[in-house]
């Protein structure tokens, strides 16, 4: 029983960054912009949050106050949004290949934080540990970070926004058939900018969760493929909030299982760690249900 509870909480913790990122990716891809840069946006958000909190702590002499991690989270979200803006400008204004532009951001996310870390902490791989982490919430049988709750509560909200509001309808129209949407008076360009920036902010929040919620410092490449798994969850979940929820829980479970099996004698952890990726490939190949992307995804819009 104990192990089941442990596994349950571990799954929630592992699924949270995937879920936040995938929900962000949902906006971007539903608007027709492929966002392979999610991985990089997580890293930028994570670095920004951890460094902000650490700097506040240094400036205030180690103050511990409830608002500090929230400021870190906010900065993480803003930085994620700014990276999203770069991706948006490149792929919307300059009609860049969205995958190339996203790859550039992912590569930058491996190098840029290291340069800042080198200047601030004289090492390239980790930031200083922070004391002010995002608060925990007691669920009766265990505690989870408040962002875990927020992430899961976001799922119905996103569903409502996407499928029950005029804005959501327009967003989906822009991703399916931008010319038609434009004819109906929707500002395609603005919708796409909003969606990509939003996805960057959510990925940035996921990064903040990793660095000041799940752990207490930034580590180089700490996302470990979370952005790509989120992208896979998007496909697995058929670009639908509830599908995405199911997919991220499944992938989160696989990761939790890998941690649980570490040192055990059932399966080697290295093999279990590869499971989400193998699973994704099986899904992509259509062995587990077909998945159809938004029709206009990846295509630059030319008026």
């Amino acid at each position: 029983m104990e192990i089941v509870i442990a596994l349950f909480f571990s799954t929630l913790r592992q699924a949270t960054p995937l879920l936040l990122t995938a929900l962000g990716g949902l906006f971007s891809e539903r608007s027709g912009v492929v966002n392979i840069a999610l991985e990089g946006m997580i890293l930028f958000g994570a670095a920004a949050a951890a460094i902000t909190v650490n700097r506040i702590e240094v400036a205030t002499g180690g103050l511990e106050a409830f608002w500090i991690p929230w400021v870190g989270l906010l900065v993480g979200a803003i930085v994620g949004g700014l990276v999203g803006l770069i991706h948006a400008i490149a792929s919307i204004k300059y009609r860049a290949d969205q995958i190339v532009s996203g790859t550039a951001i992912n590569i930058a996310a491996l190098g840029a934080p290291s340069i800042v870390l080198q200047v601030l902490y004289n090492n390239t791989s980790t930031s200083q540990e922070v004391n002010n982490r995002l608060p925990l919430v007691n669920l009766g049988i265990g505690e989870v970070s408040v962002l875990v709750l927020i992430a899961f509560l976001l799922v119905p909200v996103v569903w409502w926004v996407l499928f029950k509001t005029p804005w959501g309808l327009r967003l989906r129209a822009v991703g399916e058939h931008p010319e038609a949407a434009e004819t109906m008076g929707v500002n395609v360009i603005r919708m796409r900018y909003t969606a990509v920036i939003l996805s960057g902010m959510l990925a940035g929040i996921a990064g903040a969760y990793l660095s000041i919620g799940f752990l207490n410092q930034f580590i180089r490449a700490m996302s470990a493929g979370a952005g790509f798994i989120a992208l896979a969850a998007l496909i697995f979940g058929k670009w639908h909030p509830f599908g995405v929820l199911g997919a991220t829980l499944l992938f989160g479970f696989a990761q939790a299982l890998a941690i649980q099996l570490q040192g055990g004698d059932i399966l080697p952890a290295t093999i279990v760690q590869a499971l989400p990726f193998i699973l994704t490939m099986l899904v992509l190949a259509g062995f587990i249900g077909r998945s159809r992307p938004p029709a206009a995804v990846g295509k630059p819009y030319d008026k």
Partner: peptide
Amino acid sequence: ISNQIIQV
């Protein structure tokens, strides 16, 4: 200066 500047 970190040689990660080349990555950037």
